[in-house]
Every structure is written in C-alpha cells, then in structure tokens.
Design a protein around this nucleic acid. Structure first.
Lengths: 154, 154
DNA sequence: TCCAAGTAGTTGACGTGTCACCAACAAAGG
DNA sequence: CCTTTGTTGGTGACACGTCAACTACTTGGA
C-alpha cells in the first residue's frame, strides 16, 4: 500500500482558489436573485425545468432525474414552492402513485421577471472576466470532471 | 437602457456544465468525507484553519474573516462542533467580548484520520482528470473571478 | 388469483446556512 | 466621567438538503 498522493503547492493553491470561487460566486448569485426576485437558485432551477416543457408540467420522478436531485429533496422543495404559489400539484391518471408538478401563472411571472438580471449577473461575474479560450477551457474541464463523476467505477 | 445580454448557446452549455460539476463534485466529496470520518466539509475546513495555527486556537472573528464565513454561521457551526467535542471555547483575557475557538485532541485526531482519504478523493475526481495546462487554466480562471468578486464596485 | 418485489412520492429528524436582531463590551470624544 | 458609536459573538426563526423509513400503488410471476 502506497502513501497518500498529497497535493503539491500549486495544486493546493488551485484547489483553494476553486473552492473560494464556488463558494463566493454561488453566494453572490444567490443573494442577488433572492434580493431581486424573492426566488432562491433552487426555485429558479425548478422553474426553468418546468417552463422549458410545452405544458409547464412534469412527473416528479422525471423532474428529479432531469435535475439530478434526490426525490426527497425535490418533494420538500415542491412543498415549499407550493405554499408560495409558484407551482401546483396534479394527480396522474395513468399511475395513481404518481403526480405532476405544474408551473402556475405566478411561477411564470416570477421567473420571467427574475431571469434578465440573473443572467446579467452571471455574465458580469463570470463570463466578462474570461476570454474565449478560458471559457472553452472551463467547459472542457467541467466535461472531463463530469465524465469521471458519471463513471460507474468507484 | 439596453436589453439583457443573454448567454449564447456555447456559454449556456458551459454554464450548465460548470454548475453540474460543482454540485456533483461537492456532493461526492461531502458524502465521502462524511461516510469515512463523520466530518462534514465545513467541519473539515474549520479544523484545517485551527490546526494550521501554532496553538490550535483562533479568535472567532478572525477565523470568520479568514474563512470568509459570516460570524453567525461560524457561531452556529462552532456550537455544533462543540457538542461533538471537536473544539472548545475559551474566553479572551484582553477583550471580554471576545472568545477563542480551540481544537481539541479529538478534533486533531479526526482531521488527521480524515485528511488522507479526502485528499485522495480530490485528486481522483479532479486533478487526475486534468492535464497540467488545464490545472493552470483552472487556477487562472478562479483567480480572475475572485478578483472581480473582491472588487468593491458592484 | 394472489403475492413478492419494485416504484412514486412523502414524511420526520436532524445538520446546515441566512437574516434580523440583541446583549455585552470597547474606544473615542465631549 | 459619560455618552455615542462600533465591534464581538450569540440567538431564534426559517429555508434548505440528506438519510431512513413509510404508504400506496404497480407489476411480474407462481
């Protein structure tokens, strides 16, 4: 058995910078969205998914799969969004266990009002700081890491 | 007033890949660390900070500053770590408002036991997937974004 | 037909993060 | 000395995420 392959100083710095970027970028975007529209990033993602579909509705399991969320997480979150009137639940005729989540008018209004400023913030904080090569590199890096994360081994 | 500068398709893909990478890499690392040592990533970060200091102790505000955590967050978190015996609190003689957080022996043991596998996982999931240029690029990107996040304007 | 196994979705407990607010104290000027 | 202002750290309420357990339903055989 070999020793741990520790990170060298350069890797260490890169790792810490990456962690800091994530934490802060996320916090900034969350705060901006919340302050500006009352939506959380999670709300936003759910609404994007639902409004992307022709009739603004999706089976809950299917939605969880598409978003890579645990069903429990989605269930809790839909409950909170329901209370705020952003979505509604509907029963499924073909499968009595199933249910649909549906965007309400209020949900549509909320995301349409929130999207422009949110996108603008993403652009300002991320894309405006990078040149074309860096954007490409970021995409390539993310794809490579995602491939590994999807890999069933380990 | 100009219209929103939306993301083009390539930026869109890059942004989604970045979000997915973050979410999943973080989830994976968290699960691994938790399952392996009972520590959360947040616990780990606090312990890293404390064990990095000569006497394993830090003023709470100073710690919050170093970690870029809100004081309230740190206070809650230290309370939980205290209950589990990972740290202790000490009063500050020079400033009666102040307090120190101190790593306990148990806290030291916990992080020393946890670190090797955690680092190994970071390496497997991230650094092993990237070549030297990509690691450099990631560092450069993170630094650029952090510069903007630190910028007082906006 | 009937049951074992699987699936859809929910729930409760608990750890975590944020916000708003507060008590205790420090520091500086009158 | 005393008041004003800022700082230190904590608290309660609430949103969020995970895990384990559960209900209700479906499905694929024996």
């Amino acid at each position: 058995m070999t020793g741990t392959r520790w990170l060298d100083e350069h890797e260490q710095r890169t790792w810490r910078a990456y962690l800091a970027m994530n934490a802060r970028l996320n916090a900034r975007l969350h705060r901006q969205l919340q302050a500006d529209s009352g939506l959380s990033l999670a709300d936003f993602d759910v609404l994007v998914q639902l409004t992307d579909r022709p009739d603004g509705r999706a089976r809950i399991s299917e939605l969880a799969g598409a978003m890579q969320w645990e069903k429990s997480r989605l269930s809790h979150h839909l409950g909170r969004m329901l209370r705020r009137g952003l979505i509604a639940r509907e029963e499924c005729p073909e499968d009595a266990r199933g249910a649909f989540a549906v965007v309400t008018e209020q949900g549509r209004d909320a995301i349409e009002q929130a999207a422009p400023r949110h996108v603008e913030t993403v652009r300002e904080l991320l894309f405006d700081q990078l040149d074309t090569d860096q954007v490409d590199a970021l995409g390539t890096i993310a794809d490579a890491v995602l491939d590994r994360l999807d890999d069933p081994r380990a």
